[in-house]
Design a protein around this nucleic acid. Sequence first.
DNA 1: CAAAAATAATAGCTTTACTATCATATTATG
DNA 2: CATAATATGATAGTAAAGCTATTATTTTTG
Lengths: 242, 242
Amino acid sequence: MIVKLLFLRFIISNWPAMELLMQSLKMGINSELYIKDPESSDLGKKIVEHSISMIDEMGFERFTFKKLGLRIKSNESSIYRYFENKHKLLLYLASWYWGWLEYRMVFATNGISDPREKLKKAIEVLTQNVQEDSSVSHINEVVLNRIIIDEYSKSLLVKEVGKEKKDGYFIVYKRLVGRLGKMVEEVDKDYRYPNSLASTVLEGALYQYFLREHFSTLTDCDENITPTEYFTDLVFSILKKA
Amino acid sequence: MIVKLLFLRFIISNWPAMELLMQSLKMGINSELYIKDPESSDLGKKIVEHSISMIDEMGFERFTFKKLGLRIKSNESSIYRYFENKHKLLLYLASWYWGWLEYRMVFATNGISDPREKLKKAIEVLTQNVQEDSSVSHINEVVLNRIIIDEYSKSLLVKEVGKEKKDGYFIVYKRLVGRLGKMVEEVDKDYRYPNSLASTVLEGALYQYFLREHFSTLTDCDENITPTEYFTDLVFSILKKA
DNA sequence: CAAAAATAATAGCTTTACTATCATATTATG
DNA sequence: CATAATATGATAGTAAAGCTATTATTTTTG
């Protein structure tokens, strides 16, 4: 009884934050990434939910809409009414992921006025690997984080797509890099490469996790040393001391 | 006449170096990456040569052995006698590329005794983009560099392959990161993340070139600022001063 | 309840990623 | 130089991927 009550209170107290999160996430994701908004129906949510777990299990190349249809007992053709193809679906998942990270970062750094503390917190949130499946019911953020580590680079590769479209697909990521770059500038106005540093941290953190998992000799990160520690040290060694 | 003579002298004087390069390159490349050594025949060389240009033109996913066959007026099935599939071919090209860079790096840093100067030179060679089609006749290193920037991450993604095999496919790259890591250690024995820094520099340089080309707002690199400059500054800010 | 919208079932098409077989060059060697 | 070995080419075929189209059946909603 008490448990239930507590649970209820939790839901209620978190409702506005959750709403805000969903708002902010949906706002960010470019509507050209989907044909029909997957958040708008049960089937759509199922598609997103199970595509995440299937890509994690079998890897992006072996994942197909046909297999997904079988898994969720729906029809291949129905899935095509939500996403043009699996590449767009991956872009959608990636946008969702970066939007979610952005939200958490903004939230976590919100009250902090000292630029160094703020940047430190931001790096922490952005380079930590996700441990808890927290906010949105049908999306498992832990698994999503794993597939982003393994598959994100595939989403970038876009010979087929024109500059304008490409820009749209990556607005969320671009905005996130921009924010981080700004925070770097706040700490050291004279540093000449804030955007490069920001993109290096975001991409580099994924890469270090990838290496830790698949090519451990290429990284010093392990159970003890985290990518967060490595990049925090890196960034604050580079920026001039206060 | 004078031009011809000079050219001849150049070839002759470079012959041993060239031989050595070829040796070192072939040595490095894991023989499981090909079925039949492409260096051993005209057809093999053609396959390598034209696969590079075709991947550059159309991107790795659109590139197929059938199309390559058409281009070089050979048969799809003949190509399959050299490479198991296009993914292995990409791994072969990547190994070749890293081996070539490794060779140039070792060569360029050979005489240098000061660890800082040595590391600086290494970073220069490893992060510079390739401007001249220099050493091996049938391989255009400029174009190869371009496809590595765009497609290298695809070669890494290896859900299908077991740990042991994977290690074999990437020996050259691993050795290169190892070498660079060692040079970092030589400069600062107390730095805790030499391998992570080495892998960050190699991967990060490719990424900065990629961004410069496709998402220029995410980087400060442009015609004036090079990834080499950015990473040189980064590395030497991190390592403790002499 | 009827119309509209969403989903499912089925079929079919083109391309990719191969494998297999047999024919024909090319090269090596006795 | 003959011939056996080897490399390459031509052709065919298969399974799966990556779609599109059509029609039938639910489900939603005004």
